[in-house]
Simulated scan of single mutants.
Amino acid sequence: MRISDRGIFGGLAAVSLGLLAGGLALGEAFRLQPCYWCNFQRFLYMVLACVGLAGALLPRWRRPWALLAALAALGGVLAAGEQSWMQYAPQNAVECGFGDPTLVERLVDWLGSVWPSMFMVTGLCKDKDWVFLGLSLANWSGVCFCVLFGVSLWALFRRPVR
């Protein structure tokens, strides 16, 4: 059975929205305070959902949508990796929000001013408040972004369904 391009991109959008909703639900249930990297990952899940929706609606542009999805997912892998490293070696990491703001911090601050209930930074990046099976939420997000990156690459390089 071959999966259509619409199915792949629709699934990418649905999974991204599901992961975003799951992260928000975990945050509410366990009173987790989001940091800069958490909020940047939220933003990337939204970008992936939008790209997935665009790919499902305009499947003839499969390669550009898949490339954009792969870049967003790779950004998520890097963001989750940075946060995971900060949680693993907090003594070696400079906490977000201290010192000159980075591009990510500026973007998240702007998003927080536009949509505070979604992007307001209230936590520290080094905090590891929730752990499941030995992995923090940042670690799990990294795993999910790796899977989404793999699916995006598959969509980019596979033969189109005729």
Rank of each mutant, 00 (worst) to 15 (best):
residue 82 E to H: 10
residue 103 L to F: 12
residue 30 F to G: 02
residue 40 F to R: 03
residue 15 V to Q: 03
residue 34 P to L: 08
residue 41 Q to S: 14
residue 5 D to F: 04
residue 1 M to I: 07
residue 10 G to E: 09
residue 120 M to L: 13
residue 142 G to S: 09
residue 16 S to A: 15
residue 160 P to C: 05
residue 130 W to A: 13
residue 111 L to H: 07
residue 91 Q to R: 12
residue 17 L to H: 03
residue 103 L to Q: 09
residue 161 V to N: 10
residue 105 E to V: 05
residue 101 P to Q: 10
residue 65 W to R: 02
residue 13 A to L: 07
residue 112 G to F: 05
residue 124 L to W: 08
residue 83 Q to M: 13
residue 89 A to F: 13
residue 20 L to P: 00
residue 25 A to S: 11
residue 153 L to V: 15
residue 158 R to I: 11
residue 51 V to M: 02
residue 114 V to F: 12
residue 90 P to I: 05
residue 149 F to H: 01
residue 38 C to W: 00
residue 145 F to M: 04
residue 147 V to H: 00
residue 158 R to P: 10
residue 115 W to R: 10
residue 150 G to A: 15
residue 89 A to R: 14
residue 11 G to R: 08
residue 68 L to I: 02
residue 5 D to N: 14
residue 6 R to A: 12
residue 48 L to R: 03
residue 144 C to F: 12
residue 121 V to K: 10
residue 159 R to I: 03
residue 137 L to I: 03
residue 63 R to N: 04
residue 129 D to E: 13
residue 72 A to I: 04
residue 85 W to R: 13
residue 82 E to L: 12
residue 133 L to C: 11
residue 36 Y to S: 08
residue 131 V to R: 00
residue 120 M to Y: 07
residue 19 L to H: 00
residue 143 V to E: 04
residue 38 C to E: 02
residue 114 V to N: 05
residue 124 L to C: 07
residue 9 F to L: 08
residue 134 G to F: 06
residue 93 A to Q: 05
residue 162 R to N: 09
residue 35 C to S: 15
residue 70 A to D: 03
residue 58 L to H: 11
residue 146 C to E: 08
residue 8 I to H: 07
residue 5 D to K: 04
residue 65 W to E: 02
residue 12 L to G: 06
residue 101 P to W: 03
residue 99 G to Y: 01
residue 65 W to P: 00
residue 158 R to H: 11
residue 66 A to K: 02
residue 27 G to A: 13
residue 90 P to G: 09
residue 55 G to F: 06
residue 15 V to R: 02
residue 158 R to C: 11
residue 141 S to T: 14
residue 98 F to V: 14
residue 89 A to Q: 13
residue 19 L to Y: 01
residue 61 W to L: 15
